[in-house]
Every structure is written in structure tokens, then in C-alpha cells.
Design a protein around this nucleic acid. Structure first.
Lengths: 123, 123
DNA sequence: TTGACATATTCCCATATAGGCATATGATTC
DNA sequence: GAATCATATGCCTATATGGGAATATGTCAA
């Protein structure tokens, strides 16, 4: 069997970076297709196709206005994803540790204030 | 171009339901491959292949123990997903509204208690 | 109606998939 | 070494993809 269809659920729909970009773009207000095209510098058929997938998975809402169609992210569609990921919240490095880390980093950078370069600490 | 590789990032890796299942299974402690096979009723090559994808994307950690290999979810790898989804937290129907909605629905169903069918309200 | 604008769909293609099955690699014990 | 257990990989196929380019549909205005 091949991979599940992109339209099968939010997880598959959101696997495509461009679609995530579109969803963020359409998060706070509705935009016409051409506004998306201009805003994200993607060619129109591509945008339309991505919007189709997002619509089929309920991740965007569409409204007609004259000859243009206005799209907007339906954030509720993203909740399953968020909820699934939240299952792991208690397993990943805890807030407490992060606070501690931040404090340590702060202390470290204060101590390194005499040095010339800022230490780029990874993770 | 085809779809991005499943190993390209957490989003693509997690698009597959079985892999999500495995990640939940391996969340709280490490398991050997055969334990996963038995626990999830999936055949062994399939499990190994999924684990490969999850390993390549840093979503699981592996440890050798004699002839068996112990896998465990690396929850931190799921954080990007959670953080991306959180961007929409402020847009989706808020807890407060949901409480209100529930109260309204309750009132409505109470009012409609004399009717025969429950009104299926569409968005 | 014709024409211009806005959006959607179709066709083609290279590519990767997941599942099923067989088999290879690796580690352990006898 | 041989036999066995544990895991990984290889091969096959049907299927869907995303991009590019062309074109179709739909809507408004003159």
C-alpha cells in the first residue's frame, strides 16, 4: 500500500511545509487566493491545490465573495494534532528543568560577559 | 516532485498512524522490538521499518541489550509539532466559549426536550 | 455576447511510500 | 563451528504525491 492520502486527516495534510505555511498565513484573517499567491510567492495552481487538501481535511474554511474566494484557517482542525502531541508533554524535558536551564544560561552568560563572543549553546 | 520523505521531519514521520501508535506505546518506558510486535499486533518487519523512520527523525532512542534492541520515544522530538500547533491555540474555540456553548446547548436541549429529535447544529 | 479577472482542474512525471514476504545480518548459546 | 533467537533489510507492486504548464470553470463588467 502507498502512503495514506494527504486528505485522509490533519496529520497527513500538515506534513507538507507549504500547507503549514498557508495555515499560519490564514490564521488571523481571511485572504483571497491571489493574496495568498502574492503573500507567499507561490504560483496560483499550487496554492489552489494545497487549499483543496486543506479544505478536504477541514483545516480551512472558504467563503465566496463575488469572483473571489476567501479562505481562513479553521484552527479547530488542528486541535487533534495539538492534543496528540500533548500526550508527550509530561515526558519531554520539564518546564522546571527549562527554568533551571535558563537560569544557568543566564548565569553562564553573565560569567562570560568578559569574553568576546557569545557562546552559542545548542539545545 | 513527489511527497517529502517520511524521514524528512517529525511532521512527515508522524503522518503515519502506526508510527503515532508506536510512539505512544514507547512513551513511558523502553521496549524491545518483539515486545512492540506482540503489544501492537504488527508483524516484525513492519515494526522495524517504522522504527527506522522514527530513529532517522530522532523520535525514538535506541539502546542495545544483548541481542535485542530497546526503543523508547524521545518526546523532545515531538515538541516542534506541539509548538507549531500551539500557534493556533489562541484562534481555536476558547475554553470559556466552550463552557458557554455547553451551557447553551444544555439549555437548548432542555428546551427541546419536548421535541422528538436532537437538533444537529452544523458550525 | 465578449472580454477580463479569479480560481480550479487536468495532464504528465519522477519519486517515495507501506505492506507482504523472503532473506540477510547480528548476537548468543551449545 | 552449528543452531537459534532478535532484528534489519531487500524486493515487489499499487498508489499517491507535488510541481510545472496548460486549460477549464466561474463571475463580473461593458
Amino acid at each position: 500500500m502507498a502512503r495514506a492520502a494527504t486528505t485522509s486527516d490533519a496529520f497527513n495534510a500538515v506534513a507538507e511545509p507549504r500547507r503549514r505555511q498557508i495555515l499560519l498565513f490564514l490564521a488571523d484573517r481571511e485572504y483571497s487566493v491571489n493574496e495568498i499567491v502574492d503573500g507567499l510567492r507561490v504560483d496560483q495552481p499550487s496554492v489552489s491545490k494545497h487549499l483543496r487538501v486543506l479544505r478536504d481535511t477541514g483545516l480551512v474554511r472558504m467563503r465566496c465573495n463575488g469572483r473571489q474566494k476567501l479562505y481562513r484557517t479553521n484552527a479547530d482542525g488542528i486541535r487533534p494534532l495539538h492534543e496528540w502531541a500533548s500526550e508527550f508533554e509530561r515526558y519531554w524535558t520539564h518546564q522546571l528543568n527549562r527554568v533551571k536551564d535558563r537560569a544557568e544560561k543566564k548565569a553562564a552568560s553573565r560569567a562570560a560577559a568578559s569574553d568576546s563572543n557569545s557562546p552559542k549553546k545548542e539545545e
